[in-house]
Amino acid sequence: HNLTITQGKLFFHYNPKLCLSEIHKMEEVSGTKGRQERNDIALKTNGDQASCENELLKFSYIRTSFDKILLRWEPYWPPDFRDLLGFMLFYKEAPYQNVTEFDGQDACGSNSWTVVDIDPPLRSNDPKSQNHPGWLMRGLKPWTQYAIFVKTLVTFSDERRTYGAKSDIIYVQTDATNPSVPLDPISVSNSSSQIILKWKPPSDPNGNITHYLVFWERQAEDSELFELDYCLKGLKLPSRTWSPPFESEDSQKHNQSEYEDSAGECCSCPKTDSQILKELEESSFRKTFEDYLHNVVFVPRKTSSGTGAEDPRPSRKRRSLGDVGNVTVAVPTVAAFPNTSSTSVPTSPEEHRPFEKVVNKESLVISGLRHFTGYRIELQACNQDTPEERCSVAAYVSARTMPEAKADDIVGPVTHEIFENNVVHLMWQEPKEPNGLIVLYEVSYRRYGDEELHLCVSRKHFALERGCRLRGLSPGNYSVRIRATSLAGNGSWTEPTYFYVTDYLDVPSNIA
């Protein structure tokens, strides 16, 4: 807008934040220059609390790290170098490059900038070799853009010569660093050979998330399962459950009422301010606690030095998902009996873990797994792929695949051998790939016309006998059925096997 004052003059007093240069501009645009008398524009009460600059400061050096910015700028000295009290560095987070010096300023003089007072450097006698002032900004957020400017702080001049310097606002972004852990990993099994893994992005990506790394490792069953005799009275049979499938998407929606109208769909109840505040506090606490764990609990591995020492970490090797089922080394339970199943799973520490690289999504279907087997899954978020990966501390989750139908069934015939004193040795093959492992066998036998009897055969007993022995049988026709019990439950009964026990007292003698 054009402003013209045809008559009258300007009068400025007691404006401590208004620089004289701005008042002189007002004289020019209003056409009143030359009308004012000496005392109409006070030299001592206008701009006496402001830094009124008329020179431009330029930054000469900028260096960044993930949490620091090192700045240096060209030296500046007023005509009387004693008038320079120091520099004021202003900075704040700036997602967009549209910041002005006066953003967030209120009537009390406060604003949204963080201000650092910096002492002037030592003055050199040689004007050509003056030290460049600077400042190291610490405690910054990774991968965050900051708006920065600097200006001088000078003393009051009796001659009211307006001098000083100020830089333009520059924008500097800190470097990326390792992201925080992925949030809320959930693993479920939808079949006997697959596990579905879902997660949420890290709360602090500290860069642009480029991919996720998912490692999985087959877990050995508890050692007590191999040692305890679950045929003993009072000892509860062990059981394991597989990871249940995901709930429906509708039930997972946030901010939804727990109660549904019987007449149909209901609208979600909005969260109160107290609920939102509580969630923010919980989120802040979780982030602080995660940072504490990362800094205190997890110790970084030592990389190899120039002395030739090897990095103890196993090298990563990509495998196809079809090879995942046989990740671990199978060892027989008892070496003397080769027909026992290889369900003991000690994992070799030198073995390469299978892994998958996930790009542009937060889910993965891990296939080719062994049925009813526990897996430990390790999830890392990465925001750099080359020249070397920059990934987060791992988040861990466990899951067990679903049982395989008929995996616990005894394959092959049940054979028998009759000894003296009416002892019958029953023999059968253990299931080759049971659900988890076989903890015991149930032997059901009966003599024709009598009630059915049951015998429990422990895992250890089966390994020693290759089956079991029935003792003290009365003469007669017998039928026997056997079924295995694994961590997933009972298998199917075998087809009945028949044998006849004679009275050993009636056996004919070869003595003449």
Rank of each mutant, 00 (worst) to 15 (best):
Q380R: 02
L232Y: 08
D385S: 02
F298G: 03
V331W: 14
S305F: 13
T347S: 12
L487A: 02
P431H: 00
S248L: 07
D204W: 15
A220Q: 15
P314K: 12
K287S: 04
F499S: 00
F462C: 02
K357G: 10
V327G: 05
G472N: 10
E260H: 15
E265V: 12
R353L: 13
D503N: 07
D506R: 12
G325Q: 15
L505F: 11
S283G: 03
G306F: 08
W493Y: 13
P338Y: 08
A263V: 11
E420G: 13
A381M: 01
T272L: 04
H454M: 09
A336V: 09
E249I: 09
R447A: 04
K460V: 12
V327R: 12
Q429G: 15
G368D: 11
E452L: 10
S479W: 13
T494Y: 02
F285Y: 09
Y259T: 12
E404L: 08
L225P: 03
Y441P: 02
Y292N: 06
F337K: 08
R466W: 06
R376W: 14
S486A: 13
M402G: 07
D250E: 13
V296R: 13
G322M: 13
P332C: 07
G489Y: 12
T343W: 11
N206W: 05
N339M: 06
L437Q: 12
A394N: 08
R459H: 15
H454G: 15
V397H: 15
G472H: 04
S479N: 08
S509W: 13
G489W: 15
Q384V: 10
P431C: 11
T272I: 01
Q429C: 14
R446H: 09
R469A: 10
F499Y: 04
R483L: 03
Y375L: 15
A394T: 11
E356M: 12
V414G: 02
T347Q: 12
I276Y: 07
Y259N: 12
G489M: 07
I410V: 15
F337M: 15
L505C: 11
T343P: 10
S458R: 06
S479D: 09
V397I: 06
L225G: 01
V414H: 04
E221F: 10
S398K: 15
V365A: 05
F246E: 05
Q252S: 12
L321G: 11
W242S: 09
R218Q: 14
H211T: 08
C456M: 11
F289Q: 02
T333D: 12
T343G: 11
Y478E: 02
N339I: 12
S367E: 06
L487P: 05
I209K: 15
R400Q: 03
V324T: 05
P431G: 04
L228P: 01
T307E: 12
C269P: 04
H425F: 14
I276P: 03
M427D: 07
K406Y: 07
E442C: 11
S243R: 15
S344W: 12
Y498F: 10
R376V: 06
E221T: 12
S398W: 11
F298S: 02
D408Y: 03
P244K: 15
F226E: 07
E279D: 04
E249P: 05
A463Q: 08
F337P: 14
E221Q: 13
T386V: 01
H294K: 02
T340R: 07
E420R: 06
I209Y: 00
V214N: 01
D222P: 06
E362G: 07
P300A: 09
S458L: 06
E247P: 12
P244N: 13
L225C: 02
L280E: 15
C456A: 03
S283V: 07
Y441K: 02
G264Y: 14
F337S: 08
R466Q: 06
H294R: 01
K233V: 13
F226P: 06
D229H: 03
